[in-house]
Amino acid sequence: MGLMVGTGFAGVGFALFGTAVGCCGVAWRDEVIVGVALPARPDGADEIAGHAATRASLAAEHPDFVEGEPPPAVAAAIDGMIALLAGEPIDLADIRVDLDGMPDFHRRVYEVTRAIPPGSTLTYGEVAARLGMPGAAQAVGQALGRNPVPIIVPCHRVLAAGGALGGFSAPGGAATKQRILRIEGALPAPAPTLFDDLFADS
């Protein structure tokens, strides 16, 4: 796993990188991250198809960007995301992201969400309460559904009431959310099946 880049240029660009959950991507402008794409084929598709799908997703979102070598700050952010998705409790709160085009409420939601450490979760209602807006859980969910930089703004760490997973706008939906939370240790690993036990003893 690691970077997969073309020639590109320094001002704006995007790059793909391999992670434990598949091929992800990042887009930047002047060393500030403007978008993160989770695997566009989280269904176990072959590697080439996974790269192509994530590349197409980023190109559609950022049509004027060219695939290229990420500048140092972006490369460091990529390393952090790779480590986090491999199970390391990495803090990504210092990564610079561009949220200027987002409504003020969304930016406030993202600020609270960025403060949730790996292995922990909040509910939509708890995020709303921390904003001083109890009763705004649905609006919090809508803001997180428009999160342009998942993983860096860890919207997967925000759950529905009662610990239910809730929605997740990335490809794979709740299954992708559950997988990342398990990697981070926020959810227990699935119980082994009879077949797992049989293969373990063979």
Rank of each mutant, 00 (worst) to 15 (best):
D104E: 15
V26F: 03
A115K: 14
L122A: 10
G22W: 02
L3M: 10
L159F: 05
A174R: 12
R146N: 11
L144K: 00
H51K: 15
F105C: 09
A129K: 08
E88W: 07
P63D: 07
L85V: 03
S202I: 15
I33D: 02
I48L: 15
G145L: 07
R29K: 14
G8W: 01
G11C: 14
A59S: 10
V12W: 10
A86S: 14
V127H: 00
R108S: 13
R108W: 06
M81T: 07
V12D: 11
M133Y: 08
A86G: 14
G22I: 00
D94P: 02
A143M: 04
G119M: 07
R157A: 03
L84W: 02
P188S: 09
V149C: 11
G145K: 04
G167A: 15
S57E: 13
M4V: 13
F195H: 14
R55I: 07
A77K: 00
Q142M: 15
S120A: 14
C24F: 05
A200R: 14
F168A: 05
P154L: 08
R41Q: 15
V158G: 02
R41L: 12
Q138K: 14
L58A: 06
L85C: 03
G35K: 09
G50S: 08
P192D: 06
F105Q: 08
G68N: 06
A160W: 05
G25C: 08
I116G: 00
V74E: 04
G135M: 07
V34W: 01
R146A: 13
G141V: 03
L198G: 12
F17Y: 10
T123K: 03
G162V: 12
S169Q: 12
G6R: 08
I82L: 10
V26M: 09
L38M: 13
R41H: 11
L165P: 04
V74N: 01
E61S: 14
D104K: 09
P39V: 00
